[in-house]
């Protein structure tokens, strides 16, 4: 049976892992390569590296860091941040990334999703969507939640799927950093609406939140950062607890 995936997310800035509460007030949580290796040992199913400053500062993700990770890691990983063209994605693929995640660049140029899927296959293309509730509507936001767009989250995700996205990484900006649980209502709506995998993100603070998101929604994976980085939720403990609730996990 296909397992539900547990994905630690490593936000990277200047080659170091950071995690902000609501994307402000950054804390240093260590070396990405070492963290990645530790997570693989603990039983993480996959990793996501997001260069959180990339979009804002127009920086390219560090190819050398990706290579170092690929040399050490025996599980898949995704790279996001600052990918705006085919050449960026190709460099990351050749450095050993399994998937790339695009966010703002896809909103600004939706054709990029189709182009990437055409060249590398849709399994390589994760579309990350940051969403926030504004006057009762779920609206896509950019630049770590700083910038609202005119796109409704549900419509944009459907469009991304139609264009060739292989997976959706959906982060609720209202929940992110709060540790009050995932946005299960929206995640269930999205998961039912599309036929590609969905990664839940934003709000994980306790083991129960993971159980809740897997039992009440159809998401395929759950992503979190600080609860893993600071050892608040050890991955083996989390997976054993999920298994007790008959949620398929890899132990």
């Amino acid at each position: 049976m296909l397992s539900k995936r547990i994905i630690p997310c490593l936000d990277v800035k200047d080659g170091r892992t950071v995690k902000g509460v609501n994307f402000v007030d950054l804390k240093d949580a260590g070396d990405p390569v070492e963290l990645a290796w530790q997570y693989a040992q603990q039983g993480a199913d996959e990793l996501v590296f997001l260069d959180i400053t990339a979009t804002y500062e127009r920086r390219k993700t560090m190819i050398e860091m990706v290579k170092s990770v690929a040399r050490q890691l025996n599980i898949p990983f995704t790279i996001g941040g600052g990918i705006t063209e085919i050449a960026d994605a190709e460099a990351l693929l050749n450095a050993g990334a399994d998937k790339i995640s695009i966010n703002s660049a896809a909103v600004k140029n939706p054709q990029l999703i189709a182009d990437l899927a055409e060249v590398f296959g849709r399994q390589f293309v994760v579309v990350a969507v940051d969403t926030k509730l504004v006057e009762g509507r779920n609206m896509v936001h950019l630049n770590g939640g700083r910038l609202i767009t005119e796109l409704e989250t549900e419509k944009w995700i459907k469009q991304a799927e139609d264009l060739g996205a292989g997976e959706i990484l959906l982060t609720s900006m209202d929940h992110d950093g709060t540790k009050q649980g995932f946005d299960c209502n929206l995640l269930q709506t999205i998961s039912q609406m599309i036929n590609i995998p969905v990664i839940a993100s934003g709000g994980a603070g306790a083991i129960d939140h993971f159980t809740e998101v897997f039992t009440t929604t159809g998401v395929d994976a759950a992503l979190a950062a600080s609860v893993f980085h600071f050892g608040e939720i050890p991955i083996p403990v989390l997976k054993n607890e999920l298994k007790k609730h008959n949620i398929p996990v890899r132990l």
Partner: peptide
């Protein structure tokens, strides 16, 4: 099912040297 098939899934293994030392139902990516 969602497509692509993405993630870790159990593998039912026949007796074969390629899988020597790998338990039946082990998950692969």
């Amino acid at each position: 099912i969602k497509i692509p098939h993405m993630g870790w899934n159990n593998v039912e293994i026949k007796n074969n040297l390629l899988f020597e030392g790998v338990e039946n139902q082990t998950q692969f990516y």
